[in-house]
Every structure is written in structure tokens, then in C-alpha cells.
Amino acid sequence: MIQIYQDMKVLCFGIAREIIGNSELLIPNVEIDTVSSLKAYLKSEYPEFNVYKQFQIAVNQEFADDDRPICSRDEIAIIPPVSGG
């Protein structure tokens, strides 16, 4: 079976936007299928993520656990520690 991976688009906010240097990150053709594999990819590609406090991932505008499956059709966002109010 041939599986074609599409670019995964990740929205970036706050400190994550500054680390990545853009408000959107396109991750090309890589096999990322869970929140935890996305977190591992980000920490390895952008080691600065290891310096700052832990970020969370939102999938389709909901906070997601590490074992949540994800695909390129999902709306995915990096959520650094929030500081509203």
C-alpha cells in the first residue's frame, strides 16, 4: 500500500512563533501520527523548545493528550504556557 504523507500545518503562537520564526510551520512528508511524535519532532528540530517551559498541543481547537492521533487534515497548534488576564 502506498501512503502519501501531506505537509502538516502547525499554528504557532507566542514564544513558539518566535522560536519557529513564523506563525505557521509546514512539516513536509514526515511520519507524524500522534501528539507525542509531533512534540518529539519539534524538540529535535528546534532545540530551544527544550529550554522553555513545556508546551501543549491543540488538535481542532481542543487540548490534546500525547497519545492523540493526528493527521494533516487536523487543525494543529502549539500552545505555550498561557498568560491571559
Binding site: K53, P80, S83, G85
Partner: peptide, 19 residues
């Protein structure tokens, strides 16, 4: 998911993100 950046006399930082 709202983030606050503090701008200081001598620099700036995202609140709650500093190690």
C-alpha cells in the same frame, strides 16, 4: 490560549514561558 508579552525598560519576554 492568550499570551502576554511584557515589554520592559530593558528587554521583553513572554510571561510564564521563561525557564
Amino acid at each position: 490560549p492568550i499570551w502576554k508579552k511584557e515589554f520592559l525598560i530593558d528587554g521583553s519576554h513572554w510571561v510564564n514561558s521563561r525557564p
